[in-house]
């Protein structure tokens, strides 16, 4: 099975403190550590596990710049056969639809049985997967937390829904799935793995390579744009209890008694 996984390089929220920059219109990017978007990593691991069972190759693709190559290489170190960068100045400022259009152009470039994305990105909108499916006219399922390959070009997938329940679906290939974290346990990629793929080729496709019209992508084609970042004025918020620990506990117990939580 030929699987394409769309990945994205994002600032790592667990290892960064996201703050506004001095101008107050973007986040402070100087000290940021980037890594692959966590759900995308789960998606690649899932793809690798599927191809380990049924054969095939895993290709990882991202839309971005040279900086984003490191994420492709990391997934190649994990086991993806190929990493592809879709890069062009014309792509800058693309909204979700723009990204989906760029990815669609690449999909038509090859032949893929299954396309995976992570369910959402830290700074994204949980949209690219669904949009890509609609553009390709492929069936789609989001929040997928388990996949089994069935005979006859079908998959059985479960979706995560409320209450921890699972919605079981049967879906025809080719299709697009957006993957939720926790679907598997991704394997470790160490420094050695990264070094081993450091010299492998990562082909880059530009807008013309992909036959894309600039008006459909990038800032020109974007219908949704971010005007700035801001930190909203904090509302009243919680009543913060002050004092030393003993005093705080005493106050808390009083409050809880009043609310009927202590009898």
């Amino acid at each position: 099975m030929e699987i394409l996984v769309c990945v994205r390089r994002v600032p790592d929220t667990s290892e960064n403190e996201i703050q506004l920059n001095a101008a107050g219109n973007d986040i402070e990017r100087d000290d940021l550590v980037y890594s692959i978007n966590e759900p995308d990593n789960y998606a690649v691991e899932e793809a690798l596990q599927i191809t380990a069972k049924v054969g095939g190759n895993v290709t990882v693709v991202t839309v971005g710049s040279d900086d984003d190559e490191e994420v492709l290489r990391r997934e190649m170190a994990m086991g993806a056969s190929r990493g592809v960068l879709l890069s062009d100045e014309a792509f800058d400022g693309s909204d979700g639809r723009g990204i989906a259009n760029i990815l669609k152009a690449y999909v038509h470039n090859g032949h893929f049985d299954l396309i995976l994305t992570g369910v959402q990105a830290e700074d994204g909108g949980a949209q690219v997967g669904g949009m890509l499916a609609a553009l390709l006219d492929y069936p789609f399922a989001s929040l997928v937390n388990s996949i089994s390959v069935l005979d006859g070009g079908k998959l059985k997938v479960s979706r995560e829904i409320e209450g921890g329940n699972k919605e079981m679906n049967e879906i025809d290939l080719p299709c697009v799935l957006s993957i939720q974290t926790g679907i598997n346990e991704p394997r470790y990629v160490g420094m050695r793995g990264i070094r081993q793929v450091a010299s492998l080729e990562v082909p880059t496709f530009s807008a013309s390579n992909l036959g894309l019209d600039a008006s459909a992508v990038g800032d020109a084609g974007a219908k949704v744009k971010r005007t700035d970042y801001f930190v909203p004025a904090l509302g009243k918020g919680a009543e913060m209890l002050e004092g030393d620990q003993e005093e705080i506990i005493a106050k808390l117990i009083e409050l809880m008694k009043a609310k009927g939580g202590l009898n």
């Binding site: 290892e15 550590v33 890594s35 994990m78 991704p186 394997r187 470790y188 420094m191």
Partner: peptide, 28 residues
Amino acid sequence: IDDGNVPQSLQKPLKALESRGNPYGKME
């Protein structure tokens, strides 16, 4: 490690060591 067979609980601090030089992921 070479086979990627590492418990998830260790993957985070290892990654933090790589990117931040300490296992807690705190800023340099």
